[in-house]
Design a protein around this nucleic acid. Structure first.
Lengths: 133, 133
DNA sequence: TTGCCAATTGAAGCCAGCTTGAGGTCAAGG
DNA sequence: CCTTGACCTCAAGCTGGCTTCAATTGGCAA
């Protein structure tokens, strides 16, 4: 059988064994059984972990990610939520882009105080989050 | 004088007063002085807070934000490092863009199991985040 | 059979980033 | 002058996502 020890899964997925146990506790993954005390994982867990890792990177909490999987690890995805999250990602990407431009500006603009440089202020104000200054 | 009470700053910036005190403790912002016990903030703090908020939204820790922009929005870093930072941001933006596309795909793809959809797998593998499956 | 070493458990600890609470101060308005 | 309420400090608490620890079990190679 191609069942995997937790250490094997940890190595292959890059997720720490302790984290795997934690995920199992939360119900994000399931072990196929035990050999003695030891959990044995089926190979599909690796793909599930990719999804989990991706979901985390996308800004979902583990609870939210858990909500995206049916009991059998089949994704059961709430379209609306996904689009909402994609929108949030887009917003974050915009922020990152602004930040990037701000950094480049600061690196290149010879003005003594950037906070007073109109170009810089414009960048700041472009953030949706920005206070009304 | 146009100095601001902490409550005023909180209102205008949308950042809670307790958070402002915390930021000051960390050295991210500075109060211009005190009136009795009360901190008085100069108006430039609002711009600084924009920067901080933007950095946070972009996923940086407060320490990192502090490193990018010192007080006054003056960077503590030499040009070269700033550009390196900006490059790193660009990479991060590419990652997030992939992620975003993966999310949209999942939201819209009618395949019964995304894990088996080749398009999806390709997206997964495009991310550096993915385990070697 | 023995011994090693990976895996097990439950509880506790850790970090960031604040928030909350208790108890105290003080500037301004009536 | 007195009250009010916004502010102060310091310490403790909270959430999420793990990690670490101590004590124990048991699979597998020799």
């Amino acid at each position: 059988m191609n069942l995997l020890d937790i250490g094997e899964v940890a190595d292959r997925s890059g997720v720490a064994a302790s984290a795997l146990r934690y995920y199992e506790e939360l119900g994000l993954i399931t072990s196929a059984g035990r050999k003695g005390l030891r959990r044995q994982f089926g190979p599909e867990v690796l793909l599930q972990l990719s999804l989990i890792t991706m979901g985390k990177a996308a800004g979902f909490s583990l609870q939210e990610v858990a909500g995206m999987f049916g009991k059998d690890g089949q994704p059961d995805l709430p379209r609306e939520q996904l689009h909402a999250r994609a929108d949030a990602l887009e917003a974050q990407i915009r922020e990152l882009t602004l930040l990037k431009e701000a950094l480049r500006h600061v690196a290149d603009c010879p003005a003594p105080s950037h906070l007073e440089c109109p170009k810089f202020q414009k960048l700041l104000r472009a953030g949706s989050i920005t206070a009304e200054v």
